[in-house]
Write a protein that binds this DNA or RNA. Structure first.
Lengths: 408, 408
DNA sequence: TTCCAGGGCGGAACCGGTTCCATGAAGTCG
DNA sequence: CGACTTCATGGAACCGGTTCCGCCCTGGAA
């Protein structure tokens, strides 16, 4: 008892006495005392729970106002057992498509009264560190994972720690996920070009978030291939390029494609960012769009409309919002149906795509000097792999990516 | 005592018994018991504090590992009096320049072990709600405010609640702030064009974040005017346009400018996003860049380099990082000097700017039909205000903005 | 051998809410 | 008019760490 008293005085002097005012930290006890009620009643008022007489409630509210009392988030979180916080794990948050999703999610979580902690991930090490930290008790009520696959270890850890997880733009069995069908998107883009009459269609992709990101590139590529196959257009690996996800890089890749002896008449880029790079390359090389080259992007970011870029639109902001909503359902222990939710895709035709110029594409490709090349880099699977290392990842299990991940 | 016991049993059945396992929520007491030590010792091990015998430490660590114990963030935060969390208030987080700053800040805070809560603001009401919530106890250890001015009421509230605040890209007296001199940036851009020989220089701005954002537009505009004045070029209000901060809008504004009887030979846009809109407009109208029109943007986002856009570069990511670092200093009670920190600006000349075509610009502007205009919309303050409502905001107290804010 | 300093450590008090139980008062029913 | 709800309320226990006090033990000085 004595020590207790001594300590209280010490605290008063050491922590609060510095300012000479004891006003630092009004707490619920002080409010209760000032209002002449018990702490329980104050708590009931704070939480709008029933069974508080209106006059009492008014009196307490008045005191709260007068003392400028703000309840401690930590304390209420601790006793309630929930921090009222959601964590969002997201790779490369500065990318336009990613930040749109992120903003959509934050906005919904905010409406539901959750704080949002953003965990930005740019390396596998960072990803693991953040995922690991999330299984700690009272770290977050739930987790939204955007555009990044989660290693199975962590999935298990989340399950064990009973932390609700929802996925957006990435998949894992058993978890609620909101996705768009990237393979279908790739097919839509390619089919659009085929319908316009193109037969030599290039592909510009990224490296799959440099070892940590999702598989959208691979899937969009498979859609590209499926569309070609359906149209009986032989696949030409020489028309496929990959590089880091930046307009600058894709611009160089497009230059390579356009510099081929038998260049493509159309290019499908895996994102609008990269499509813009393609447009820039065409501009630099004096290749007319859409006269000499059609370009299709992906995402329909704001700049796409402005540049007249034909693109595959996916609801970015909405995907984040949906993920957040579904997490909120989960947190209220409501059913989340369907577990796997697919958002619509649509091709938005603008001025960057048009039928190929007469004599270009199939016709030109069929004869003339380019024929030799076409033979050399023909359509048989055997040959595909020989053509430039950059696109081998798409065809095999992406060894480069695995290597990158392992190095980290 | 009896009730206590009864309750404990109830809890065991009700909360943990559901799963049949009591493993939900290993806490420090259980760890202490399992390791045969006191809770204090476990805490000392967790916090790497001295005075723990190596053998004891090892034993505790082993138990922690075995029980898969993760300390509760809420509990440690509560007893320590700090949530180890920083809040970032940011307007329109999806804008490229903003998200760069945000990412820079998050990255630094992460390194320092702070969680980052992102509060995205798109309306004045949202801003006020978020700012108000931040003065609550244990909400955040500190606040970084990006690109948005804080009303004085909230500044006072933060001071009273003793919550450290640092500003980035916005100013307030007495607070640590990291900024770039927007007026100087506007001057740099304009001087660059003047040095190339331009004399009819248009200005395309936004509406200052629609009522909640910072004053950068106004300051860049003042830099623009200062540069004109220094070069003794009469200010022509007809060459100034403002609209919402989007490439689509700026594109329309640029069309208006280019459609003038005496169009500008150069346009300074207050962001790269808006400059891209200008480029698109020029493209649509068949105006050659830089032959017929020079364009200068601001920020130097990634797309700028690709498009060959001349721009004013400011260190975006770094500004956020600096702000975060300074907040961390503050949180460690170290001195933050200087309070007002200015980051460097530089003009990056690319291919979107060049000397005006012979006969254009100064020559044409000096005589001919435009003379009358020039007189009508001359440099006297009296006349400026008459020219189109859109740019009046820049000169007066921005009544439109206030109205917008009030409506929300 | 005695005394003292100080390291190692257990555990109570505490951070500030929430929740449940007990209590008393007011209201209802027979 | 008494027994039985029902409602409003005070307050203790609790959430799970941190910290400080004080005890014990060891080693060095006297």
């Amino acid at each position: 008892m004595k020590s207790c008293r001594a300590r209280e005085e010490g605290a008063a002097v050491g922590r609060r006495g510095v300012t000479g005012i004891a006003s630092r930290g009004v707490n619920i006890t002080q409010v209760a005392r000032a209002a002449g009620v018990g702490t329980g009643t104050v708590s009931r008022v704070l939480n709008d729970s029933a069974n508080v007489r209106p006059t009492t409630r008014a009196r307490v509210l008045e005191v709260i106002e007068r003392l400028d009392y703000h309840p401690s988030r930590l304390a209420s979180g601790l006793s309630r057992g929930s921090p009222r916080t959601v964590a969002i794990v997201v790779p490369f948050m500065t990318r336009p498509s990613v930040v749109e999703r992120l903003a959509g999610a934050i906005s919904v979580l905010d409406e539901h009264g959750y704080d949002t902690v953003v965990l930005n991930v740019e390396t596998a090490e960072q990803r693991d560190r953040h995922l690991k930290s999330l299984t700690a008790r009272h770290r977050a009520d739930g987790v939204v994972v955007l555009s990044i696959p989660i290693p199975a270890t962590f999935l298990a850890a989340f399950r064990k720690a009973r932390i609700p997880v929802v996925l957006v733009d990435t998949e894992a069995p058993g978890l609620p996920r909101t996705i768009a069908d990237d393979a279908r998107g790739g097919r839509l883009a390619t089919e659009h070009l085929i319908a316009l009459g193109h037969r030599r269609i290039g592909f510009v992709g990224d490296l799959g978030f440099e070892g940590i990101g999702n598989h959208s590139t691979r899937q969009r590529f498979s859609g590209y291939r499926a569309a070609l196959q359906a149209a009986r257009i032989p696949y030409d690996g020489a028309l496929v390029r990959q590089g880091s996800h930046s307009a600058a890089t894709s611009s160089l890749l497009a230059e390579e494609l356009l510099g081929l002896a038998d260049p493509p008449t159309a290019i499908f880029a895996i994102s609008d960012t990269q499509a813009i790079g393609v447009l820039a390359a065409a501009d630099r090389m004096g290749v007319e769009v859409p006269g000499d080259l059609s370009v299709v992007g992906y995402d329909d970011v704001e700049a796409a409309a402005l540049l007249g870029l034909t693109t595959v639109r996916q609801p970015l902001k909405e995907s984040g919002a949906r993920g957040a909503e579904r997490l909120c359902l989960l947190l209220r222990h409501e059913r989340v149906r369907p577990l796997r939710e697919e958002l619509p895709l649509e091709i938005v035709a603008r001025t960057s795509s048009a039928p190929p110029a007469a004599g270009a594409g199939t016709v030109r490709a069929a004869g003339g000097g380019s024929a030799g090349r076409q033979n050399a880099f023909g359509t048989s699977g055997d040959h595909e792999r020989r053509v430039r290392g950059e696109h081998r990842q798409l065809l095999s299990e992406q060894p480069e990516l695995h290597r990158l991940a392992a190095e980290r």
